[in-house]
C-alpha cells in the first residue's frame, strides 16, 4: 500500500449518503396495524365528545348559557324541549363542593400515609402495606357507597350534628332543618376515603424519589427526621402531591354510585354542607335516567358533556403537573 494514493479531499466535502431504512412489506404492514390500533383510544375519546355534543346540542341551543346557571329541572311534557326547563347549576356546584371537601378531608391522610410508608417504616412492612393500599384502591365504589350509607352515616350524622352545634355560626355549617343524613359532608367523607389510596400512590412515588444525598445532608447538619423531611422531601414532592390530589379530584368529580347512595339530591344551589341536600352531576344522570323521556335524555347527555369537559380539564392539569415533577427529579 502506498501512501501517495491516499488523497485528502481539500475543498469539497464528500457527498453524504443518506441512510435509507427500507422496511420490508410485512414490517410496513405491521407498523401500520399497530399505529392504527393505537389511534383507537383517540377515536373513542373523540367519539365520546362528539356523540355527547351531538345529542346534547339541542339542549344548549334551547337554553344556551342558562343550562349552566339555572337550577330548575323540569321535564314538562317530557316529549320535547319546549315547555321543559333544564339547568345543572345546583348539580355542578354540588359536584364541586363535594369534591373539594373530599380533597380537604383526604389531604392530611394522603401526606401522612405517603410519608409514613416511605420514611417511617422498614422496607418489608412497606411492601406489605403498599399492596394493601393498592387493594383498597380497587374496592368498587358501590361497596364504598353501601358502607357509607349503612355503616358510616349513623356515625357521621352525629359528627355533623356536633360540628353544627359548635360551629353553626359559620355559614357553611349552618342548617335550616336538623337533618344531617345524606349530606354533602357524608358524601365527601366517602369520596375522601376513596381517593386516599389513589392520591397516596402518586404522592408516595414522587416522595420516594427525593434525593438521598440531600436528606443525608439534612441529617448531617443535625436535623431530626421531620427536619429532613421538611427541608428536602416536602418541597421536592410538592408537585407530586398536587398532581396526586388533582387526580383524586378528577375521580371525585366523576364518581357516581358512591355519591348516589349517600347524597340527597336537591335542585337548588346550596352551600350548607351539613344539611341533607346537595347536588351532583354524575348522580343526577344515574338517578334520572330510568324515568327520563326523550327530552330529558337530551338534557342528561348535555349534563354528561359538562361533566366530561370538567374532569378532562382536571385530569389534564394533573398529568401535566405529575409529568413535570417526574422530569425535574430525573
Amino acid at each position: 500500500m502506498s501512501i501517495a494514493t491516499v488523497e485528502k479531499p481539500t475543498a469539497a466535502e464528500p457527498p453524504r449518503r443518506s441512510i435509507t431504512n427500507q422496511r420490508n412489506a410485512s414490517d410496513k404492514r405491521f407498523r401500520a396495524v399497530v399505529t392504527s390500533g393505537a389511534m383507537f383510544a383517540f377515536v373513542v375519546l373523540a367519539l365520546i365528545a362528539g356523540f355527547l355534543l351531538f345529542r346534547g346540542y339541542e339542549v344548549f341551543r334551547e337554553f344556551g348559557f342558562g343550562f349552566l346557571t339555572s337550577s330548575t329541572w323540569d321535564s314538562g311534557t317530557g316529549e320535547s324541549l319546549q315547555g321543559a326547563s333544564y339547568g345543572v347549576a345546583a348539580m355542578l356546584v354540588g359536584s364541586i363542593i363535594v369534591a373539594l371537601m373530599a380533597m380537604i378531608i383526604a389531604l392530611p391522610f394522603v401526606i401522612g400515609t405517603s410519608l409514613f410508608l416511605e420514611y417511617y417504616i422498614g422496607k418489608k412492612i412497606r411492601a406489605v402495606l403498599v399492596s394493601i393500599l393498592d387493594l383498597m384502591a380497587a374496592i368498587p365504589s358501590i361497596i364504598y357507597g353501601l358502607w357509607g350509607y349503612l355503616v358510616l352515616m349513623p356515625h357521621a350524622a352525629g359528627w355533623a350534628s356536633t360540628i353544627n352545634k359548635y360551629f353553626g355560626w359559620i355559614p357553611i355549617f349552618k342548617v335550616d332543618v336538623k337533618n344531617f343524613d345524606a349530606s354533602p359532608f357524608i358524601s365527601a367523607l366517602v369520596l375522601g376515603l376513596m381517593i386516599i389510596p389513589i392520591a397516596s400512590s402518586v404522592t408516595r412515588e414522587v416522595y420516594s424519589r427525593a434525593p438521598q444525598d440531600q436528606i443525608s445532608a439534612a441529617y448531617a447538619l443535625g436535623g431530626s427526621r421531620w427536619g429532613a423531611l421538611k427541608a428536602v422531601v416536602l418541597p421536592f414532592g410538592r408537585s407530586g402531591l398536587i398532581g396526586g390530589m388533582l387526580l383524586g379530584l378528577g375521580r371525585a368529580l366523576g364518581e357516581t354510585v358512591a355519591v348516589l347512595l349517600t347524597l340527597n339530591l336537591v335542585f337548588k344551589v346550596k352551600f350548607q354542607v351539613l344539611a341533607s341536600a346537595g347536588g351532583n352531576v354524575a348522580s343526577l344522570i344515574a338517578s334520572r335516567f330510568g324515568e327520563a323521556g326523550p327530552s330529558e335524555i337530551k338534557a342528561l347527555m348535555a349534563a354528561g358533556l359538562v361533566l366530561f369537559t370538567l374532569t378532562l380539564l382536571v385530569n389534564f392539569g394533573a398529568s401535566i403537573i405529575v409529568s413535570r415533577s417526574a422530569k425535574v427529579s430525573q
Binding site: 375519546l45 356523540f51 368529580l253 357516581t256 354524575a282 344522570i285 361533566l307 385530569n315 394533573a318
Partner: peptide, 20 residues
C-alpha cells in the same frame, strides 16, 4: 399524544362512558 390521550381517557367518568 397517545400517552396524553390514554391519560385523559383514564379520567373519563364511568357514567360518561355509560352515556356514550
Amino acid at each position: 399524544v397517545v400517552r396524553v390521550i390514554i391519560q385523559s381517557m383514564s379520567g373519563v367518568p364511568s357514567i360518561v362512558a355509560g352515556l356514550f
